[in-house]
């Protein structure tokens, strides 16, 4: 792996630890305050089909990959 990639990977691990660690520092969300989070709109990608369609469009029109998950398929659209 190139140094640049290695550097990015290290940065990522630090970022994950920072986010996970900050979770302990902030005030804990009580169970009775979990109402909004139960809603279907409170997710990173509320519509699987829509985000799948967008991922496919941008994958074929741009040079980057990477979203919320793994898997999915390739296509000849490069």
């Amino acid at each position: 792996m190139s140094t640049r990639l290695r550097r990015s990977a290290l940065l990522f691990v630090l970022a994950v630890l920072a986010v996970a660690g900050s979770g302990c520092a902030t005030a804990k969300v009580q169970p009775w305050d979990r109402d909004l989070m139960a809603r279907e709109t409170m997710r990173f990608a509320p519509s699987k089909i829509e985000s799948g369609t967008d991922d496919h469009i941008y994958f074929s029109k741009e040079g980057s990959v990477g979203g919320l998950g793994v898997g999915g398929g390739g296509c000849g659209c490069n």
């Binding site: 994950v16 986010v19 996970a20 919320l68």
Partner: peptide, 28 residues
């Protein structure tokens, strides 16, 4: 042939009653 191997690590956290955040990294 074109073989693609990918790996992903992610963390998401409920910061407050209204706020959900997440960080995810992918290597391919």
């Amino acid at each position: 042939p074109k073989n693609v191997t990918s790996g992903m690590l992610g963390v998401s956290h409920i910061l407050s009653r209204r706020w959900l955040v997440g960080l995810s990294g992918t290597l391919q």
